[in-house]
Design a protein around this nucleic acid. Structure first.
Lengths: 130, 130
DNA sequence: TTCTATGCAAAAAGTTTGCAGTTAA
DNA sequence: TTAACTGCAAACTTTTTGCATAGAA
């Protein structure tokens, strides 16, 4: 857990952020997380949410996603999975893909690049917007 | 070409942006494009580069890419291909994938979502940083 | 002539950072 | 006791926008 890392101490705020991200399937923005925490932490600052999100990304507890140009979203599920973004409402959801799927098999020529990770993202119209 | 669209008139600046994006394999940021155009258009403003990039994205002449959290990059190649981002130097390059590759085949359950597009991105260490 | 394109500058939106006080270990 | 964590506010970066003028059709 967080306490495994030497550099960082425990913080109630950071644990709450992780809990929120672990317990939701949608992929909230920093601001959404901030608003969700305000009840429990009335003095919380948005800057601190960003600071902790960066620490969680750095320690591989969460992933930063990049959808569209507007703002970042965060994901508490670090296992390989894909995302689907609705072109109408902008909602981001998970999409399960087969475990045996390895996109590296489809690379024509890696030209000496060492591939370590991949992300696969889909877009279209979600079930609510059809 | 651009003149096909009804709404927009021809603009030397916009054509230059398109030319730059068509003639490079790296995926420049708005600011990089702006700097590259400064010689030919000394009065050019960065705001106008952004305006034209948005028009080009809207008319499907180029694609907006989203790597990392810092800023957007643009791509003049609208055919299906993948990108590779180096975790060390941050450079973004193209990666060819097989034509018959269709990631939709690997979706477990689309839950009523209508998938229209996908993007596949790889990361790792590039040939120069190994 | 009409309406889009432009440069400029200001504003907006998202994110980071410096500081002084607080808190975990 | 030490160094990380915090709120606050200011700063920073990227992108958008309002306005008056220039330019394409």
């Amino acid at each position: 857990m967080l306490t495994d890392t030497l550099k960082y101490r425990k913080s109630r705020q950071r644990e709450k952020i992780l809990e929120i991200l672990r317990n939701t399937k949608c992929h909230p923005t920093a601001d959404t997380i901030y608003l969700e925490m305000k009840d429990e932490f009335p003095d919380l600052s948005l800057g601190n949410v960003y600071r902790n999100l960066n620490i969680l990304v750095e320690t591989n507890m969460i992933k930063r996603l990049d959808f569209g140009s507007t703002f970042n979203r965060y994901d508490g599920n670090c296992e390989t999975h894909s995302h689907f973004i609705c072109e109408k409402c902008g909602e981001v959801s998970d999409l399960e893909i087969n475990e045996n799927f390895n996109p590296e098999d489809f690379i024509k020529n890696s030209n000496g690049k060492k591939v370590k990770n991949f992300t696969l993202e889909f877009s279209g119209i979600c079930e609510n917007c059809r």
